[in-house]
Computed example of a mutant assay.
Amino acid sequence: MATGKIIKALSGFYYVYHEGTVYQCRGRGVFRKRKVTPLVGDIVEFQAETQTEGYILSIEGRKNEFVRPPIANVDQALVVTSAANPDFNSVLLDRFLVLVEAKRLEPIIVISKMDQTSEAVAAEIEEYQKVYERIGYTVILSSFRDAGGIDRIQSYLAKKTTVIAGQSGVGKSSLLNTIDPRLNIDTDEISESLGRGKHTTRHVELYEVAGGLVADTPGFSSLEFGDLETDQLSECFPEFVEVQDQCKFRGCLHAKEPKCAVKAEVLEGNISEKRYDHYLQFLNEIQNRKPRY
């Protein structure tokens, strides 16, 4: 019996990394009975007669887990968005940040394809960069020809398990291939007719990259706030968390309530009005979602 980490799950097999070797394993029937599915990122105990005949016996407790993509024990998220092709979308970026914050992950924002946009759009993105850095986020503006940006991204990957989040077509797989050409992960051109990327990543897999483990995944295929309640949303906006204890009403949703510290900070210009507008949009979405039974 040995302990290892699942680095890939495919067609009912789990590929467990242990001391430099990968073992192909199946899950014991006991997992099905308990309705537990081993996930990429899980630390497991396993037994293997050969490299292709192993069984997972138990799964250690997880510090976090995602349903889409199915992965566990992640340290941080590289949130990749693009300056062009597809165009920069601040609402979508904030949506990804909320989903990442909800899982208590450290987000690192990468805005790719900076070399493919106009000076006006680049200037607008640089203003957004200032907003996010003021909040405390790391923001890296990059193109795949920019060695400095790539080096900076690599420095954040060491000794971490990182998931890459971002809409299709922003260059998540291209980014990994640039950092480590040996990966040779499938990429595809933007679909001109759809204006978005085709899904080229078929399964979740952890790759050794820059001294850490990086998940190349099909991305967050669901961007809905299905598990998030109205009173949890503001916790996913760090700049709100800093001041919301000063709101007059406990449980303030920072929407229609009087004497709200968050709204006061927006009026003072200390909290981005656009970020606040996105918060209200997300709040309305959560309040109006259909109940699940």
Rank of each mutant, 00 (worst) to 15 (best):
213 L>Y: 13
177 N>S: 10
256 K>L: 11
185 I>T: 10
128 Y>A: 04
241 V>G: 00
53 E>Y: 07
185 I>F: 00
127 E>M: 13
67 V>T: 06
1 M>K: 13
42 D>H: 03
64 N>Q: 11
127 E>H: 14
255 A>W: 05
245 D>R: 01
286 I>G: 00
228 L>P: 03
211 G>R: 02
201 T>W: 11
46 F>C: 06
292 R>N: 02
56 I>A: 04
133 E>T: 12
125 I>V: 09
134 R>W: 08
139 V>G: 01
5 K>A: 01
36 V>K: 09
194 L>K: 14
42 D>C: 06
94 D>G: 03
182 R>L: 14
18 H>Y: 15
290 K>W: 07
53 E>I: 01
215 A>K: 08
100 V>D: 08
221 S>F: 08
135 I>G: 01
268 E>W: 05
36 V>G: 00
159 K>T: 13
181 P>M: 02
105 L>Q: 05
166 G>V: 07
126 E>N: 09
190 I>V: 15
235 E>K: 01
278 H>P: 06
281 Q>E: 13
97 L>C: 05
60 E>I: 04
261 A>T: 06
90 S>I: 14
203 H>L: 09
109 I>P: 08
104 R>C: 07
122 A>I: 12
152 R>K: 15
63 K>D: 00
263 K>P: 03
64 N>L: 14
99 L>R: 05
200 T>V: 14
113 K>M: 12
116 Q>A: 15
14 Y>A: 01
140 I>N: 05
94 D>E: 15
261 A>F: 11
194 L>M: 11
19 E>M: 13
111 I>S: 00
69 P>L: 07
239 E>V: 07
172 K>D: 09
37 T>A: 04
256 K>F: 12
284 N>M: 13
171 G>S: 08
65 E>K: 15
57 L>F: 04
163 V>P: 06
125 I>A: 05
120 A>C: 01
194 L>A: 13
166 G>A: 03
73 N>A: 03
18 H>C: 10
80 V>A: 02
151 D>N: 14
137 Y>V: 00
205 E>G: 08
48 A>W: 13
268 E>K: 15
220 F>C: 06
176 L>R: 03
127 E>S: 14
